[in-house]
Amino acid sequence: MSITNLEKYLPENTLPFLKTWFGEHYIHIKITKARNSKLGDYRKMPDKSHQITINSTLQPQLFFFVLTHELAHLLAFENFGNRISPHGSEWKNTFRTMLLESISIYSEDLKPIILKFSKAPKANFMSSPDLVKYFHIENYEDETSYIEDLETEDRFIYRKQTYIIEGKRKKNYICLNIDNGKRYIFKPLARVEKLS
């Protein structure tokens, strides 16, 4: 999908930002039906292109915000390499810079919320009560996360068992099962329910 085909989903005056961020990258943008598990998604494809999916039901400002979040993954990986954490400091700094660059896109009542969020960008949209309230996303429930999006010592539930992340071995995660005291290895894209 070309950038201009995205216009109907976006607020006005976003194309100059997107053209700069897209640069020479080959990006497949897929507009999906509403998903209860996520608003958007980024993947690097085997052929070195990039795929971003975004829910079609999002309001224009939220659509742009989610697209910015996903593009920040692409730019962080391209600038800092594939070994960085998906929502680590490199991604946070990239996302922060992009939000501040494009702050003019957002309405006056949303700008303070975006500025506050940009000070410490969160991986999960639902972690920002101000944004959730602004966009009235009460029905959105993100019950699962990829284990690679969690931090060391985070607790999570997998198949009704509680675990804590102890560390990383190469690409996989070593996790202690709180219920039986045994250690297990989890792949980065294992879907788990994070405990707060």
Rank of each mutant, 00 (worst) to 15 (best):
H50F: 15
L62P: 00
K48S: 11
S37D: 13
T32A: 06
G40H: 03
L58H: 00
P60R: 00
I29S: 01
Y42F: 12
I31P: 05
F65Y: 05
T57L: 07
D47N: 15
F63G: 04
H50S: 06
S56E: 06
T68Y: 05
I27S: 03
K44P: 03
F65R: 03
H69G: 03
H28N: 08
H69T: 07
Y26Q: 14
N36Q: 15
P60K: 00
M45L: 15
F64N: 09
V66N: 05
L39I: 02
T53H: 07
S49W: 09
N36R: 15
T32F: 05
I52G: 03
Q59Y: 04
F64K: 07
S56V: 03
K38P: 04
T32C: 07
P60W: 01
Y42E: 01
Y26D: 12
R35Q: 13
Q51R: 09
T57W: 10
N55V: 11
T32M: 07
P60L: 01
D41C: 09
R43Y: 09
I52S: 02
N55T: 15
I31R: 04
F63C: 05
H69W: 05
I52T: 02
T68F: 07
G40P: 01
N55C: 13
F22Q: 07
T57G: 08
Q59S: 08
L39G: 02
E24I: 10
Q51P: 08
T53P: 06
K33N: 14
G23A: 14
K38T: 11
P60Y: 01
P60N: 04
Y42V: 02
K33T: 09
D41Q: 14
V66W: 02
E24T: 12
R43K: 13
D41M: 12
Q59K: 11
S56P: 02
L62V: 06
S49D: 14
H50I: 05
I54W: 01
Q61N: 07
S56I: 02
I29Y: 01
F22R: 10
H69E: 09
